[in-house]
């Protein structure tokens, strides 16, 4: 099982779905950001799995994953800063109350 690409990919898919659900369902902005992290992790897992099992992608996948991690870090920084800025304005972390775009 641990030597089958399929199991890693399915695991990644499940993780991604959980992240998706979290992003769509949670009301808290920070929860949504955490869900995004989960989804990014799922993607990373996919990349690493392919790198481990597919000879042409070997090592390349690791580099790509590293870059993804760096980008994720940047995204988290900016994302959280935005959440904090909005929170200061709206006095609430709940995303469904951020509806000024509908006006």
């Amino acid at each position: 099982m641990s030597s089958s690409l399929d199991s890693y990919l399915v695991l990644s898919g499940l993780l991604f779905s959980i992240g998706t659900f979290g992003f769509l369902a949670r009301r808290n902005a920070i929860s949504m950001l955490m869900s995004i992290e989960l989804m990014l992790n799922a993607v990373n897992l996919t990349i690493i799995a392919f790198g481990a099992f597919e000879q042409p992608l070997h090592v390349h996948a690791s580099v790509i994953a590293l870059i993804v991690i760096a980008v994720a870090a940047a995204e988290a920084t900016v994302g959280l800063a935005i959440v904090i800025a909005i929170y200061r304005n709206k006095k609430t972390p709940l995303v469904d109350e951020y509806d000024s775009m509908s006006e």
Partner: peptide, 17 residues
């Protein structure tokens, strides 16, 4: 139809999904 445009991010995200 403007009700569809709730202005809430997650509704749009649901649309994407």
């Amino acid at each position: 139809l403007r009700r569809v445009q709730t202005g809430r991010v997650q509704n749009y995200a649901l649309g994407i999904a």
